[in-house]
Design a protein around this nucleic acid. Structure first.
Lengths: 326, 326
DNA sequence: TTGAAAGCGCTAACAA
DNA sequence: TTGTTAGCGCTTTCAA
């Protein structure tokens, strides 16, 4: 390449890096670059410069739109800043091994780690640094953390239900290890302080399990079902329909995340919008600051937004009898 | 690192590569590696070995579950084979620039390029090689290509509708540049050979636009709406509900992709299942063969599967009057 | 403004 | 089995 343009490798490097070079030389180099489609070897650049212009992102499941939306937010900012995205799916192999492998090839890493235990994070965070942790609050872990504030939004949601007249709420709980799930459950439970009766029913993953959970909730007299996320809410709607229980007449239903399908459901689903794109963008900003040498730490939060739709309504007085299945 | 273990760098390299080393030396090296949490520099390894053990994947939109499911399939296989995933979102910046940047840091690339023109692909494919193209058939482009066979599945779907008695079909068309959309449209249109009247109505992106498209289709007397994908189908269901048109009594509706929400819809949505995971896995296999030096080319296809649910039924004789909106 | 030279951290061929 | 040596392809001083 250098010889083809009649200059030294150093000059080629300078031209491509946009440093000051005599215009004629620069033009000649660029011509040859164009002509032979020259692409510098990234590994060599990385080695020489001691950085990769790549960041790692680990998500629990690439098949879950919630996490890939965060990924999109990160990617939008990072790509714009000239960084590449190295993605690891920690649901495929051992979480720690994925983190290690990803981190090895980049300048810093964002961990989307809603299910990881603080202990594990504690052990690896030094090795992975610089690192940003998303959707998992672990105060003892010395790394910046960022999450959606579903707690406040959940209180807003249950407050709304109470004002409509609901007194018996059921929370259809997601995975116990999920930090967001814990936050949401705790917030729903807090509604007891304001006179609500709260039943917490864990739902599994299958439609049948959700159906059983719904039965349990109705048997407990719940007039409003607060599902852990929109998928659970959709499944609950489907199960209620099968049982002939009307929504919102007989029971109100809400979800979390406000996926695009939420407003298309029958009835349109009340949900708590989770700004995943903004979450990802902010995670990138924090990591960028870390890469620039700034010492950031602590826990940041992004607001969620309650979006009321037709799947909630005031409870019917006669509801408890009607709603009991069978 | 080497000096700390009292051996040469070469021996450390050998131990970490699992080559034959005297057990005592190996143990000593491993102990020191463990102790100081040593991680080899990936850039240096890449440079020395002339490969990165990383593959690139470009998708049109990380926020679209269809593409991230393919990504999941690729990741499952690639991670298992010890490869990392470098992901580019070609919806963010210029497609070609994203491809170039991604390809520069890896050993090969998978292009999920349903909207890219064959001309553009033709121009870049040599630069990007080894490359696999997913969901875009461009016979003139000298690179292996892989796609879901929605054509056959669509014929199966319209055949089923015909057998139910439908004679007027409407295709709610997606983006004209999408290859899958073209395939599906062409297949629906082929149904004319078997006595169907086919109306093709482009839908935009907003719910209102889909609503207008639905109105058009109903005005043309369609008794079955074949939507480009499940999102369009969901939106159509929602719009029909608003208009008081019953599904499947007044009109049948079908989608493509069979996303998890399809069977949870009201009524459960008939859809054509698209095996995105398998598609991704197969794309990886082809790329892997390419990396191993095998000369693969040509166009491969993966079967889709029609999944009939309650959103389709025989047309009602009196339907044409009822179905016309307003 | 530019070339020569050193070095980034590793691997692989060669010798011992 | 292991150390020595020579690169891998680039960037970056340092001199000229």
């Amino acid at each position: 390449m250098a010889t083809a343009a009649g200059v030294s490798p150093a000059t080629v490097s300078r031209v491509l890096a946009g440093k000051t070079v005599r215009p004629e030389s620069a033009a000649r180099v660029r011509a040859v670059v164009e002509e032979m489609g020259y692409q510098p070897n990234a590994s060599a650049q990385d080695l020489a410069q001691g950085r990769t212009r790549t960041i790692g992102v680990s998500v629990p499941d690439l098949d879950n739109p919630y996490f890939t939306s965060i990924l999109k937010g990160i990617g939008r900012e990072a790509q714009a800043a000239g960084y590449q995205l190295l993605v690891g799916d920690s649901g495929i192999s051992s979480e720690r091994e994925v983190w290690r492998a990803v981190r090895q090839r980049c300048d810093g890493i964002i961990l989307c780690a809603p299910y990881s235990s603080p202990d594990v994070l504690m052990q690896v965070v030094a090795q992975l640094s610089p690192v940003v942790i998303v959707n998992r609050c672990a105060p003892s872990v010395p790394a910046p953390q960022l999450a959606v504030d579903s707690h406040s939004a959940t209180l807003e949601l249950t407050g709304h239900l109470m004002r409509l007249g609901h007194r018996r709420l059921a929370y259809l709980a997601g995975p116990e290890s999920s930090w967001s799930n814990q936050e949401r459950r705790r917030a729903v439970e807090s509604t007891r302080h304001f006179g609500a009766e709260v039943t917490v029913v864990p739902v599994g993953t299958t439609a049948e399990e959700v159906g059983q959970a719904v039965d349990q909730a109705l048997a407990a007299g719940a007039t409003a079902l607060i599902a852990f996320n929109d998928l659970v809410a959709f499944t609950a709607l489907s199960q209620l329909r099968e049982r002939g229980v009307r929504v919102p007449d007989d029971v109100s239903v809400t979800g979390f995340d406000d996926i695009p399908y939420a407003r298309l459901a029958a009835p349109p689903l009340t949900s708590v919008y989770s700004p995943q794109g903004a979450l990802g963008a902010q995670a990138w900003k924090i990591l960028q600051a870390l890469l620039a040498g700034e010492r950031t730490e602590g826990f940041q939060t992004i607001s969620a937004e309650v979006r009321i739709r037709d799947s909630v309504a005031p409870p019917q007085p006669r509801q408890r009898d009607q709603a009991t299945p069978r």
